[in-house]
Amino acid sequence: MKMKKQNLIILIIAIVVLFGILPAAGSNNLLQMVTLMCLYLAMSQMWNLLGGYAGMLSLGMQAFIGIGGYTLTILSVQFGVNIYLSIIIGAVICALFGLAVSPAIFKMSGVYFAIGTWIVAEALNVFFSNWKFVGYAKDWSINSVFGMSTRQLYYTALVVAILATLIVFVLLRTKTGLALMAIRDSASAAETMGVEIYKTKLKCYVIACFMMGLIGGAQYMQTAYINPSTGFSINWTIAMTFAVIIGGLGTMEGPIVGAVLYVIITQIMYNFPGMSNIVLGIIAIVVILLAPDGIMGTLYKKTGFQILSPRRSIPKVGETKAAE
């Protein structure tokens, strides 16, 4: 593990080169798949930051995908605002909205928190369906993205994915990260040690909300169609949860592996209509039963392999120097 830093640099260079040459070398299909992987990766990374590190199992992240998508739609289609500016405004709105609902939902914890966030998302669905400004529940074709090249979508998604990963990577290596991992391992122990739980959680939540808005905007550039029931669909959160669980909850590599697998599986399953959910369900059950820590979590336990996650809990024998 001494060569960790060196490994990391090589890995990053390899990835940058790979992603850089992809648009030139890869087919449209490959490019589109990688675009989807980037988007799901970013979503899962954020969900993992909340669920895996901050102990906030949210079932309502679709609220922010929806707000991001709707802001993109309304601003760019209705008011002709630049697409990227619309997405950033959407993300800011998400962060503010997250901040606004946090006093209420942070009163809940565990399963109540999960249900509370879900209810917020469902309430938004109903609210948008009855809100004149967004055309009630009408179907929007996001014609501001019509004719946009696959390459442009790819780069947008790539930037979002890198940003999401980078945020988690950096955040976990700060004091907040230390506090987060303490909370993950034992909230009450962390509190007695002087970790400000509420503040730490809030910081993560607002960051995740902001990023979800960004991801929602980038996602709807790709989908080019939105209405309240799709924007605020629980399916978004199911996808994130799935990716994180099979990849490995509370690891940084987990969401990456999970998102890549999720996209590959769903793409293959287009050839077998109706089977997609069954196959995803079976995989999730098998992983939970056989390897409850997910692919990367299990790998770490068995071999100590990790690239990105800082692990300060239970250092392995002979690896005490590994931290940092």
């Binding site: 593990m1 490994n7 449209n28 299909n29 490959l30 890549v260 068995k302 071999t303």
Partner: peptide, 27 residues
């Protein structure tokens, strides 16, 4: 353990690259 880690890292990388290549040939 290090050797294990390295093998595992290579295996994961290989699987991911392989799956990407497989998707590419779908086209």
């Amino acid at each position: 353990k290090k050797r294990f880690a390295r093998i595992a890292a290579i295996a994961v990388a290989a699987v991911m690259v392989g799956s990407l290549a497989a998707c590419g040939s779908n086209g």
